[in-house]
């Protein structure tokens, strides 16, 4: 079967997975990017969020054949950057993390938001994470964490 090529966290990679395989499965099972979580498998919860060409998408409802030539960034890739470290520090300071299962997806949503808008207001933040469900926090402390991340990483976005 033809290889599918794409860029993963800055690296050129390819997979021989079936093009209708779910992107989440390829990222997790083949590339061991287990920061990509499966919370629902129906595009509702956002735990499997990644960036595709700089925009947030749900990897559980994308077929890998659809991302040929795309530039993908996973939570692991984002976490390894200065921006990722600012997000992480903002969350930690705000106490944003509880069970954590949604947090990698939240970090991806945060990165996507701050790239478009480095100084978002409360409503813009809440809109940006509206596809990322969290059952623990009620969201306010995550919103606070994103505000702190924007300040900590000021100039990075």
């Amino acid at each position: 079967m033809r290889e599918i090529r794409f860029t993963l966290n800055g690296r050129e990679v390819s997979t021989s997975a079936h093009p209708m395989a779910r992107l989440i499965d390829v990222l997790r099972d083949e590339f061991r990017m287990t920061g990509v979580k499966e919370g629902c498998g129906e595009g509702e919860c956002g735990a499997c969020s990644i960036l595709k060409d700089g925009r947030i998408v749900n990897s559980c409802i994308l077929a890998v054949g659809m991302i040929e030539g795309a530039v993908l960034e996973t939570p692991e890739g984002i976490a390894a950057t200065d921006r990722g470290r600012a997000i992480n520090a903002g969350y930690a300071e705000a106490g944003a993390v509880q069970c954590g299962f949604c947090m990698t997806g939240m970090a991806v949503a945060t990165e996507a938001l701050l790239r478009q808008n480095p100084a978002p207001d409360e409503h813009q933040i809440r809109t940006a994470i509206s596809g990322n469900l969290c059952r623990c926090t009620g969201y306010a402390m995550i919103v606070d964490g994103i505000k702190r991340a924007a300040i900590k990483g000021s100039g990075l976005w």
Binding site: G46, R55, I56, V57, N58, A109, A128, S130, G131, N132
Partner: peptide, 9 residues
């Protein structure tokens, strides 16, 4: 109708 992750595709 949709959150950002869905709107993007």
């Amino acid at each position: 109708l949709a959150a950002p992750g869905l709107r993007n595709v």
